[in-house]
Computed example of a mutant assay.
Amino acid sequence: MQLTTVGKPLLKAANQASQLEQAGAGDPVVAERLRKLKLVETLRKKKVPWDEVQKLVGISKATYHRWKKRLEEQDLAGLKPKSRKPRKLRRKVHWKPDVLIRIERLRKQNPTWGRWRIGQRLHREGYTLSERTVGRILSYLERSGRVEPVSAFLARNRKARLRRKSQRPYARRKPAEYTALRPGDLVQVDTLWVDLGDGTGLRQFTAVDTVSRWGTAGVYSRASAKTALDFLQQLVRRCPCVIRAIQVDGGSEFMAEFEEGCRVLGIELFVLPPRSPKLNGMVERLQRTFRDEFYTRALPLGIEAIQGELEGYLEHYNLHRPHMALGGLAPVEYLAKLQEVSVPLESQMY
């Protein structure tokens, strides 16, 4: 390092300070502190600013005065590093075995309980332990591996729940190479919550064939696997083509009885990835049409009466309503065109 401010006097001071190392030869830390004290004194005689002294020597002004005072009062012993051991140490407490066993048993029975709940339980049983003591015992039990930390228990069970949720006996992701070419190759199914405005609401199951745009729907008081199975049976009966695959989201109503129903009927069941409603875009669009065209009209009271009105709208939707995606044809007209047969005058599906 080139010393522009101090120059040669600093080198001379370093040589003088090295002689002091012999005084503290028994302790290299004492010798080093003596050398730094001498360097600071020499630099200050040359009127070197304290900020530069601190950079050159490596000690602050407060440290210099503290060392100097201890050297004057205690001689070389004052420059020895002081022990950093706390003046007061926590006494090692040996807990009674019955207390350890009781707290361990309570935590194993209630894996998410912390020191407060366990402490409250112990107080009811006659123990006189503070909440902090219970916390120290729990920490000891966790370190020794006798109980599992609450965070580890929650993380492990969260992963287990995700694994259980993802395991479905029949449903699977739609293969990338699967393409719907014929009517019935893929039917999208979804649920719609409808607020009737009088404090009540209903659940509508909606289905649409992705090729012909033929659609159907059913209203229920709730969306469950049993009501979904009932809608599946209605869908199979009404659909003018053979259904080969159905695509749904991950809702619980499309599990259990609904999934088993698809398996029994020999219908492929595809489940969408999480947070991807756009992959069921056709049925989502159909449900918007129901909101705009059907649920904006005055409806009767009761599920059965609303279902009756819905049947009339579905007949209009499938037989008469033009679809832009079908070149202005209605779904039944488009199906008839594909089959190269005439369009029936009356629907046999409702």
Rank of each mutant, 00 (worst) to 15 (best):
M349Y: 15
H316R: 10
R173Q: 07
Y313F: 14
I306A: 03
Y295L: 04
Y350S: 15
V48S: 03
G266D: 05
N157E: 08
R172N: 11
K68L: 11
T4H: 15
A228P: 06
E315F: 01
Q2E: 15
S276F: 15
V271P: 00
V150P: 08
Q54K: 05
G251M: 06
L10M: 10
S166K: 15
E333W: 02
P331M: 05
L345N: 09
A325T: 13
L319V: 11
T296V: 13
L20G: 07
T63L: 00
R237M: 08
K68N: 09
R136I: 01
R168A: 12
W95K: 10
C241F: 09
E131Q: 04
I303T: 09
W95Y: 11
P240E: 12
E304L: 13
D209H: 04
G145H: 06
G184S: 09
R117W: 03
P277T: 07
E253P: 01
V271H: 09
A155Q: 14
K45E: 06
M349N: 11
S166G: 09
E131T: 08
W50D: 05
D209K: 09
Y178C: 09
R163W: 08
L162N: 10
E125H: 00
K47G: 09
E346P: 03
P240C: 05
L269H: 11
A62N: 14
A160T: 10
L162Q: 07
L301N: 11
H320M: 10
R105N: 06
G312A: 14
H316E: 14
K36M: 10
Y334I: 01
G251D: 09
K45S: 07
K68A: 09
A77K: 15
P240N: 03
G281N: 11
A305V: 01
A217G: 00
V236K: 07
F153I: 04
R117D: 07
V242I: 09
R275I: 13
N15M: 11
L154G: 03
T179K: 14
D198K: 03
F294H: 07
G199I: 00
R163L: 04
G199V: 08
V248A: 01
L286R: 01
D190W: 00
F270V: 06
